[in-house]
Design a binder for these strands. Structure first.
Lengths: 238, 238
DNA sequence: ACTCTTGCGTTCATACTGGTCGCGGCCTCC
DNA sequence: GGAGGCCGCGACCAGTATGAACGCAAGAGT
């Protein structure tokens, strides 16, 4: 199996090095280049496609782009649109600190294959690229013509349902329920209030809220004015 | 929730009518138009985006395109590239009889969201669009900023449901028995309850239920309130 | 200013289920 | 008729929410 040729597009030199190193560490991938700007990326892409496209077995050609959204000379989405306009056969994984919903939404409709939010761990990175490799194997291993279930299979491997791992004692379901509860309410809520709404015990609710506060997803503050020990109240951050 | 506005692009009048009718039958979707050619599609798209883009609450705008690959005046992939080049925020589901691997591959890298091979049943169609609706709810229901796990969640809901063939360790008979059991009961049931009703072991029942939950045929949720480790309860979806 | 009251934070033991491993019966294919 | 694989089961271990008990911090009362 030929390796998947990867182009890293990232203006921050430290991050670019890190991504390149990550790619080198993975089996089945080959680093095809690093671009520090949108212009550089376009140049590399057209050079590669001029060399390798068209021909059946052209050796170069970029298979996968790891694309940062914040580039010095262009927004990542613009670059993505230009690439699409050229009809280059490269897939794109967005790797960026941008977490605005609007950008995520646009990136997805522009046809990215994965969206990875910085900062991330090596294992998150490896998961995403691994999923992409599997997706590729699923499609390319097939004959020239395919079936619905094969296509479904390929899509399935591209969209894994493997969220980040939680510390012991916490469950994915409960965490989602609590996050959902927090997000629907604008007001800060106490652990006891969350507990009674979700039919949980106060202790359990508190454990999850404390975990979220630890990860900076929620803000914790004290609620004074009532008798008794002051209560903590939690509010979804941002 | 506003309906998802769908544009059907299909040159065969019979198929176009069928797709339009299918869309009308689905909750949460609205038919925004039918185009018989690439040119017509581009005209409708730019009209819609001129009316509705830019503005925050523009009512029109196309959210989703059901795109045939074989159009009289252009290949579907070309149309797709032009749409992408304009940066329109529409997502695309390819619906086509074309099953060449090369086309599927290109369509995916051009950023389609699903690929549906004709001929298909209404239920296959409904599955694909339902998955897309869920994906949208996942993303749009969120606040302005998002997290990695939410993005993953959204991608995961785009993943097609059950693979056609059963994984090892599961038998057709047992699966049918369990599905039958779930369908007759309206109430969510725990793995242990299913097991005792069907005279199976808890382990076996759980394996099947988990398989079904993975394929999105059943919904899994936690049952709180009692002491001890929380129980999962399973309910037939729709 | 000191103590009392109050109610939540925190810890701990407990209960009950989920998940995994290896075994055994049964069917199928040599 | 023997061998191999498949599927369900029992039993263990780990996981996860609960409830009670204890302690602490802020207001209320004297």
């Amino acid at each position: 199996m030929e390796p998947i040729r990867v182009l890293v597009v990232e203006d921050d030199p430290i991050a670019a090095d890190a991504h390149a190193e990550y790619v080198r560490r993975l089996d089945g991938f080959a680093l095809a280049g690093v671009a520090r700007s949108g212009a550089e990326a376009m140049a590399l892409l057209s050079a590669a496609s001029a060399g390798g496209a068209g021909a059946q077995a052209g050796p170069p050609g970029i298979d996968l782009i790891l694309l940062d959204m914040n580039l010095p000379d262009a927004h990542g989405l613009d670059l993505l649109r230009r690439v699409r306009g050229l009809g280059l056969p490269a897939d794109v994984i967005a790797i960026t600190a941008v977490r605005e919903l609007q950008v995520v939404r646009s990136a997805i409709s522009a046809g990215i294959v994965q969206y990875l939010i910085k900062p991330f761990t090596y294992s998150a990175f490896s998961d995403k690229l691994g999923a992409y490799r599997e997706f590729r194997l699923n499609l390319i291993g097939q004959a020239a013509s395919t079936t619905q279930s094969e296509v479904d299979q390929a899509f399935a491997s591209l969209r894994p349902a493997a969220p980040a791992s939680l510390p012991k004692g916490l469950s994915e379901d409960t965490l989602r329920a609590i996050i959902g509860q927090l997000k629907t309410l604008e007001e800060p809520v106490s652990a006891a209030e969350v507990a009674s709404t979700l039919d949980l015990s106060r202790v359990t609710a508190r454990r999850y809220l404390e975990y979220l506060a630890d990860g900076r997803s929620v803000r914790r503050s004290s609620r004074y004015g009532t008798r008794g020990r002051p209560e903590f109240e939690y509010r979804w951050a941002q």
